Amino acid sequence: MANDSKRYLFLVDDEPIQNEMLKDYLNERFLYEIKVFDNGEDAMQSMHLNPEIVVLDYHLSSQHKDAKNGVEILKAMKDKHPETQIIVLSGQDKIDVAVDTMKYGAYDYVVKGESAFSRIENLINNASELHKMKVINKGQKNTITLLSTVIGLIILAAVYFLVIKPRM
């Protein structure tokens, strides 16, 4: 998460109406700070905010013909921010496209259509739970490490005071 403890969700789609409709839909259901981008390059520049989830359009070139496509942005995001869960959204209902995005680290692939928003909602719930479990797991690992260190120091102190010091 970002240093200011806000939880970010990015929407990256070159169709402004799609972005606004999805943003309104998700704002009614989640407490994320939602940032909207019409191209992947701008989203990449804001990745320092460490978004938990990115909903990324597969095609990103209708506004800017030289813009990187969704797969290129997906690869770059996962390379620099592997913990971010990326949901790819596309108008293409082709299994090879879905497999390709999953191969590069997408959390899931959603085909645009009448059930897309509710599917995205379910995926965000699942990705959010996964993120929460990872945070809890990291905290527990840190606690175990700290407790192990303290116990080790107590044992060393006991050995020193009960065995080594009396011999002196």
Rank of each mutant, 00 (worst) to 15 (best):
M1N: 13
M1D: 11
A2Y: 10
N3L: 14
D4W: 12
K6A: 12
K6Q: 12
F10S: 04
F10Y: 08
N19D: 05
N19E: 07
M21T: 00
M21V: 02
D24A: 12
D24I: 10
R29M: 04
L31H: 04
Y32G: 02
E33H: 03
D38P: 00
D42P: 03
S46L: 05
N50D: 06
N50G: 05
N50M: 08
P51N: 04
E52V: 09
V55I: 09
H64W: 09
D66C: 06
L74K: 11
A76L: 13
K78H: 06
K80T: 10
H81T: 12
H81M: 08
T84M: 05
V88H: 01
A98Q: 05
V99K: 02
D100L: 10
A106N: 09
Y107W: 12
Y109L: 02
I120C: 05
E121Y: 02
E121D: 06
E121K: 03
N122E: 14
A127H: 01
L130F: 07
H131C: 11
H131T: 15
K132A: 15
M133S: 14
K134Y: 04
V135A: 14
K138Y: 12
G139C: 13
Q140G: 07
Q140A: 08
K141S: 14
K141C: 09
I144Q: 14
T145K: 15
L146T: 15
L147D: 12
T149K: 15
I151G: 07
L153M: 13
I155P: 04
A157R: 13
V159N: 11
Y160R: 08
F161C: 11
V163G: 06
K165E: 12
K165P: 05
P166G: 11
P166C: 12
R167W: 04
